[in-house]
Amino acid sequence: MIYVLAAILLISAFLTVTLKNIFHCALALAVALLTLAGFYFYLDAPFVGVMQLIIYVGAIMILIIFAIMLTTRVGDRLLSAANHQVMPSLLAVIVFVLFGIAAIRKLDLVAKAGKMSDPIAGLGRELLTTYLLPFEVISLLLLAALVGAVVIARKD
C-alpha cells in the first residue's frame, strides 16, 4: 500500500520537474500533493490529511495554475520549465535527506502521538488555552497577508 503511494508520488514528482509544458507540470504537482495527502491518511493523521487536501490541493494548486494562466507566454509550448541546475539541486537534496534523517531519529514521535485520545479536539483545546495568543496572532498574520495581496495586486 505505502509502496504504491510512494511510487505514484515519485513518478508525479519526477514528471513535475521534467514535463515540457509548464501547465502539465502543475497538474503533475497536483497529483504529487494529492498522493502526499494519501500518506497522511495512511499514517493515521486524518486532520493533516484533510488540511493537505483543502490547503495544498485546493487553494495552493489553484494559485499556481492561475499564476501560470496569467503569464503572457503560456501559449508558447516550447517554454522550458527546467533550469538545468543538476549539481546544486543534487547537493541540496543530499543535505536535506541527511539532516532530515538525523532530525527524525532524535524525535520520539510515537510516544508523543500516543498520549492524545482525540488529536483534533486536543489541538483545538491547546489553541484556545495554552496557545491562545499565537492563535489570535495567526489571524493578524492572515490579515496582513490579505491587505498585502490587495496592495500588490492593485498596483495597476
Binding site: I55, G58, L63, F66, M69, L70, G124
Partner: peptide, 26 residues
C-alpha cells in the same frame, strides 16, 4: 493570458482557506 484579476480572488481564497484550518479544531 487570463485576466490578472482572478489572481486576487485566488489569494483571498487561500487566506480564508488557512483560516478554516485553525477554526475547525477550535
Amino acid at each position: 493570458q487570463f485576466n490578472p484579476r482572478y489572481y486576487l480572488f485566488a489569494l483571498a481564497f487561500v487566506i480564508f482557506d488557512v483560516e478554516i484550518l485553525f477554526l475547525a479544531p477550535t
